[in-house]
């Protein structure tokens, strides 16, 4: 092999590695990206059973039912629609009725959403950002419904 050929081989090797990486990224995106939905979105677009999604909203007041063992079922609402969710495991510290929550999981049938993770993030306003944005846009959630001591902090600081 001449020097030039050697160099070409090295460059081709590098390129093919990058190509493999790009294909891998595209494959992984198609496999593991979860779209974010609110309950009223689900009324509009059907999500086929088995597709991983993130479902966000408020935990409907009075909907939390503890079943056998550590299975908990509750409803996630955004004011106009609500979706029943069941989850087995320990709920996060900040999980409360009437507070924002993001759950990730799949619909087993078109009705039952089985979550394998529930997030109530340690956010400044006790509200996951995606949920807060949407609820604000829909006018369901107001600043004051966050914790009274920190709720308006963001807007006050200059």
């Amino acid at each position: 092999m001449t020097r030039k050929q050697k160099r070409m081989a090295v460059i081709a090797g590098g390129m093919s590695f990058i190509l493999i990486a790009v294909l891998l990224v595209m494959f992984a995106f198609s496999q593991s990206v979860a779209y974010f939905f609110m309950p009223s979105d689900l009324a509009k677009n059907e999500v086929s059973p088995g597709t991983r999604i993130r479902l966000g909203g408020l935990v409907e007041a009075g909907s939390v039912v503890r079943g056998a063992g550590s299975t908990v079922s509750f409803k996630v609402t955004d004011g106009s629609a609500s979706v029943p969710v069941s989850y087995t495991g320990i709920l996060p510290d900040l999980f409360r009725e009437g507070q924002g929550v993001v759950t990730e999981g799949v619909f087993t049938t078109s009705q039952a959403f089985v979550a394998d993770s529930v997030l109530a993030k340690h956010d400044e306003n006790y509200m996951p950002k995606e949920v807060a944005d949407r609820l604000k846009a829909d006018g369901v959630w107001k600043e004051s419904e966050g914790s009274p001591t920190t709720g308006a902090k963001g807007s006050v600081t200059r």
Partner: peptide, 11 residues
Amino acid sequence: KISVGAPFFNL
């Protein structure tokens, strides 16, 4: 809004 979680990065 989408989330790219651990499965993507692990893979």
